[in-house]
Amino acid sequence: MSEAPVVEARSLEKRFGGLVAVDEYDLRLERGDLVGLIGPNGAGKTTAYNLLTGVLKPSAGRISLSGRDMTGAAPYLMARAGLARTFQNIRLFSDLSVVENVMCGGHTRLAASTVATMLQLPSFWRAEERLRQTSQEIVERIGLAELAGQRAGDLSYGDQRRVEIGRALAGQPQVLLLDEPAAGLNPSETRDLVSFIRQMNEESGIAVLVVEHDMHLVMDLCKRIQVLNRGKLIAEGTPEEVQGDAAVIEAYLGAGRKERAHA
């Protein structure tokens, strides 16, 4: 593994016309990092995610993955460079089975070439077998072994979230971006999720960035937290530091009434 951080974003900026959605956003994720990105609604968290994953092209700034400059690269190239993500509003391949969803995530890494597939060469059969085996293992890891053959669209909300993570893991990413992974989960599902993320992070060293509204989850899970407000980073530090930060408290609770009256 190279010394360069797995993700390095410098001064990312995104403008939609006159609106600056994200301004001067910096992120540095090392191997094994577990960072939370929080902020009030409309702070630009999802825009920041879309910039990092290549869904949106930044208006300014640079992104590099493991030392390689990827600014402006398409999402599939970002994914191939080791960056995987999940979506706030779950985006599965609903009509495919659970294991097939995971297999799609491993397609670029493990599948045979187009030519080998069309000619059904032995290398195709080997690759297909390996892909199935790896995906089966991941399906077991995310605890859905019994549902492997089920249509993904028919699963419960919590299970669908797991499938998304499984699909992301199949690409063997260096970094995983989770967009509100606990949204819609009940408390016990959330606990399972937290321990799964922590375990994945510790065992495989995958760097994780989490956007989440559940403050308990973020403070409990993350080693470092970034706070975004109106597109700007207003604080970064350990959960304790961030919780005590005046700017953060102001962003979430608003400035005191007195103060505003004087302003």
């Binding site: 994914a79 993500r85 391949f93 799609c104 670029t108």
Partner: peptide, 12 residues
């Protein structure tokens, strides 16, 4: 099924 998700999974 979902073009954006496919793309974010490394599929072109």
């Amino acid at each position: 099924e979902n073009e954006l998700a496919a793309q974010c999974s490394g599929i072109n």
